[in-house]
């Protein structure tokens, strides 16, 4: 039985796809059989972030409509064993995604994988609701910014009521907070919400904290999930996040502002 994890946020542009790709990659690097599914029908991007956009032949909707088998649509990752990608459809209308169809696909995948990561579209419409409906756990991606925090709270409300677990009165979907684009320097200046404030407002467990990092854009430019950039702060922060997802107790990093010393100010800091 695979564990189904939805990566969601409500607000767009906060780093859902980056996080879904990075977490899926991290899990696979830890030897877990992982598949990451793009639920953003019409605006697929996971394939680009994973660097497999030219190998997409069939997609989620093709499988649901019976035009292709699941194995034909699954793309094997070039870099990591144990990692597969199921892309979203680019052209079709959103109604093509049906609850029954998604359930069937997840039921099949759950037999072969340890983890199923569902990359949710932004918003709280059908696509987002379907992405979360079958989840066992949720990673709520939040930026330290008012609209993102507010939307995350809305998503928490949906996770508590509009999921299969909620409807069947099973144990609630496990909610994890992932703060991304965190800038310790601006937090230090008092111009950015700090992580304690965000946790206090949303009142869920902190799974990880990803600093605002140049490595994220470098990674998406190349189509290599940032987890592979083991030297970067963001890459290490995602690796920590994955460890915590696997139940390990890892101390938080990159949340404190390091005042630059004279030497590094003169010669410039190392690569971030």
């Amino acid at each position: 039985m695979a564990k189904i994890i939805v990566v969601t946020s409500g607000k767009g542009g906060v780093g859902k796809t980056t996080s879904a790709a990075a977490i899926a990659t991290g899990l696979a690097l830890r030897g877990k059989k992982t598949v990451v599914i793009d639920f953003d029908v019409g605006l697929r991007n996971l394939d680009l972030i994973m660097g497999c956009e030219r190998r997409v032949v069939y997609d989620l909707v093709n499988v649901i409509q019976g035009e292709a088998g699941l194995n034909q649509a699954l793309i094997r990752d070039k870099r990591v064993d144990n990692l597969h990608i199921l892309p979203a459809s680019q052209t079709r209308d959103k109604d093509a995604l049906t609850s029954d169809g998604v359930e069937k696909i997840l039921d099949t995948l759950t037999k072969d994988f340890d983890y199923i990561i569902c990359d949710s579209p932004a918003g709280i419409e059908r696509g987002a609701q379907l992405a979360m409906y079958f989840a066992d756990a949720a990673v709520v991606v939040t930026n330290p910014e008012v609209s993102s925090v507010r939307d995350s709270d809305r998503i928490l409300g949906l996770l508590a009521s509009k999921t299969r677990r909620a409807e069947r009165n099973q144990d609630a979907v496990k909610e994890h907070l992932l703060i991304t684009r965190y800038n310790p320097s601006r937090v230090d200046d008092g111009d950015m919400l700090n992580l304690d404030d965000i946790q206090e407002i949303l009142a869920i467990d902190l799974l990880g904290l990803i600093p605002e990092s140049e490595a994220v854009l470098r990674a998406s430019n190349q189509g290599i999930p940032v987890t592979h950039d083991a030297k970067s702060d963001a890459g290490q922060a995602y690796t920590d996040t994955v460890s915590r997802l696997l139940g390990e107790d890892v101390p938080l990093r990159f949340h404190e502002f390091q005042k630059k010393g004279l030497l590094s100010r003169m010669f410039g800091g190392g690569r971030r």
Partner: peptide, 19 residues
């Protein structure tokens, strides 16, 4: 007043209302 604390206060009110 630090803008982050303004943000926090506003969020606490709107989130309580949403809940």
């Amino acid at each position: 007043k630090k803008t982050a604390s303004v943000a926090k206060e506003r969020l606490q009110i709107i989130v309580a209302h949403q809940r």
